[in-house]
Design a protein around this nucleic acid. Structure first.
Lengths: 218, 218
DNA sequence: GAGTCAAACATTGTTGACAAATGACAACTC
DNA sequence: GAGTTGTCATTTGTCAACAATGTTTGACTC
């Protein structure tokens, strides 16, 4: 059924960057693992996820699995039908995706605008770090890595605003958009767009940063 | 501790309008019940919610309670700290609330715009129904009722767009905003704003409807 | 009296067993 | 042969007990 080496990783990925807190409880580990498999395209839309199957696969009981599936359902990555189960959500329709794009722009632009109030250089340092890792990942073949670093970049932006209070609002929107990450995406172009945003922030050019961000989110 | 008559309602409220499906499973019933108590202000921000306490209160085990708390956490009504528990979330900060307002406007305006493509009269019928109930509720004293009907109104709008696919995106945003529903709110004025939106839709005046909607969401 | 440590308590996290609901399939009716 | 009903296997829903973690309390030291 599944590869036997798809075991629960005992630790997070080697270079888990700054604010990625590694979860102590099983439900979060399971959720992270499944989230990555969905976003990297290993689990395609429509694929059913059975609690018992996952339980034996991870070598734990159904309880934490259940919690994790609930998490992912609320994040929009799975859809649940009572008494039947969950399956990987479909990509959003064209109409819905268009709305999502506007919402992401609104949130991330608000965050960047808030940053320009203080221009705290700590964020720039982290973004630079992320960029160098992201460049490497885009050259490599690990799509899961690329997705994670891309998301981390935008999460860094959002976390600056109002001390991270926007993240919980932003995450489900972001995840739904990333359901179709793999397709139609030039990775290196994405990297250069990230770099352009950071460059404008370094130079203190607010309008340019916002414009680059807006053009990047499509 | 709690009133003994705060038992789990065996059925939903008497005039549960059209698309409110009554939940068969306990977790949804518990979630609905708690959601209402939070939004109506019976449970104030910061109040801790203990699994065991709720379990005996509802006369069920901790399992469904746990699921319900997870739901509400992901909806933004509760905040969870691992190994410690959940408590009712604080009202969003001024900055966050401002972002939320823009997101809600974006979503609901998209929905209304989509409706003007077809102008399906079924929606108008439901909105009229809602309005009459809403007017009564605003006159009465049951704040929970008012909140529910207000939310139902906007849910009706959102559900028309793209066959309801926006609802899951919209709900957490809406709920966070309603965390401070009770305060600073003139109920009758709110009713008249709803009525104004519906009137513009009846008359086919798209711009007026969108403008009224935008002014209503603050 | 202030600070520190450990033990007791309270609460969540996890587990395995059992109950209830669903969907598929076969037998039956008309 | 089309539709309906009944049965069965599969899957989720619920439960109660146990383990692990976090918090509080109170004695003890300085």
């Amino acid at each position: 059924m599944f590869d036997s080496e798809s075991e629960l990783p005992t630790l997070r990925s080697p270079h888990a960057l700054a604010p990625m807190k590694l979860a102590a409880n099983l439900q979060e580990q399971v959720a992270s693992h499944l989230r990555r498999r969905i976003l990297s395209g290993q689990l395609l839309p429509g694929t059913p996820l059975r609690e018992q199957t996952l339980a034996v696969e991870f070598g734990i009981s159904r309880g934490p699995i259940r919690d994790a599936l609930l998490h992912l359902t609320k994040e929009g990555l799975l859809i649940a039908k009572p008494n039947v189960g969950v399956r990987v959500a479909n990509e959003p329709s064209g109409f819905k995706r268009n709305v999502i794009v506007h919402l992401r722009r609104e949130i991330e632009a608000s965050a960047v605008t808030a940053w320009f109030e203080t221009r705290d250089p700590a964020l720039l340092k982290r973004l630079d770090d992320n960029l160098s890792h992201y460049k490497d990942a885009c050259g490599g073949s690990d799509l899961g890595q690329v997705v994670e670093l891309d998301m981390a970049f935008h999460r860094l932006l959002v976390e600056t605003a109002d001390h991270g209070s926007l993240v919980d609002l932003w995450l489900p929107i972001m995840l739904r958009m990333f359901l179709r990450y793999s397709r139609h995406r030039d990775l290196m172009e994405s990297y250069h767009e990230h770099a352009g945003i950071v460059r404008a922030m370094h130079g203190g050019r607010e309008w340019e940063a916002l414009e680059a961000l807006k053009l990047h989110i499509v």
